[in-house]
Amino acid sequence: MKRLGKRLLAGPYLMWMLLFTVVPLVLLAYNAFTGADGSFTLTNVAVILDPVNGKPFLRSIGMSVLVTVICLVLSFPLALILRKCSGNKNSFIVMIFILPMWMNFMLRTLAWRLILLNNGILNQILTALGFGRVHLMNTIWAVILGTVYDYLPFMVLPIYNALVKIDNDVISAAQDLGAGQWTILRRIIIPLSIPGVVSGITMVMVPSISEFVIASMLGGGKVYLIGNVIEQAFNSGYADIHAGSGLSLSLMVLILISMVIYRLFDGEEGESSLW
């Protein structure tokens, strides 16, 4: 009997993923654990402990946590409000939030440069209003601002998608039974939004921890993150692919461990519901 699911159909995909995700990672690990002469060594993995690399590493972790928290705090009320704008306007408002995502993020970052530069728009406005200038460009705050801006939709949309799935009748029932706004939020909306929050946090934290191009565009080389260190290790005059591989491996292991802990802590498989 012929059935629809032919396992063979998954063959090309399986081959592709093995060849282009598993093999490269094995190669990365191989480079990380060998020296220039091909002998086994742990020095490349240990370079992360060197303060020159360790400090940017910690800075990246701190920054991505901060970015994720800011995104979450900004997004949750926004998703709640978007949910309330139900009806026909709904798809339109969601579209408005997807729209900026379609602009190339380098162009969006370029816009922030225009705003934050020392003789940029923000300072022009501040001086015109009689306040002093602020020096934001080339500081970590500019990088955080740019990163939050770039990743905000990745937090808003999963939370929104989780929230619209909540049946209005559930909320009406709670209201009929005497629950106030706050109780409804705490006992119904927040627990049911968890899958969205989980995938939102993942989608913001993972890319922002390894961010390096926003840091170089808005941080002007003064904000040095682990991504910049890795990039330098591969693409500069004194490139060292073994040290670079070691650093990349450390970053990967850190992300994997935190994801495992996070999923265990969360207790359930978070649906990735971006769209």
Binding site: L27, L28, G227, I255
Partner: peptide
């Protein structure tokens, strides 16, 4: 999905 883009990029470059 879970790997940082930079690690995916570096690993593919090595290959």
């Amino acid at each position: 999905m879970l790997n940082a883009d930079i690690v995916t990029g570096v690993a593919l470059m090595l290959l």
